[in-house]
Amino acid sequence: MKELIEFLARSLVSKPDEVKVEEIPSGRQTVIELTVARGDIGKVIGKQGRTARALRSLLKVSATKQGKRAVLEIV
């Protein structure tokens, strides 16, 4: 899940080196915390949050495949 979000975020931003992804387990759920360069936040959120919504939707597939639940937080 972490690799997926890392790959997607790096592919979308202008400064891939500044992409950081943390996987924080909390109970049955995993929080995937994504950090990008200031100027790149718009790229991972998108117009009206479309990109963020798409990222969450793909993360959900990946999590379901592993029998887990995951939420994406963009910080």
């Binding site: 592919s11 798409a54 939707s57 793909l58």
Partner: peptide, 18 residues
């Protein structure tokens, strides 16, 4: 087809960017 649409959207965003 919502997940498929999300996948399509992301693929296009990445290709456009790259």
């Amino acid at each position: 087809g919502e997940t498929l649409s999300a996948l399509q959207f992301i693929v296009n965003q990445i290709l456009n960017h790259q």
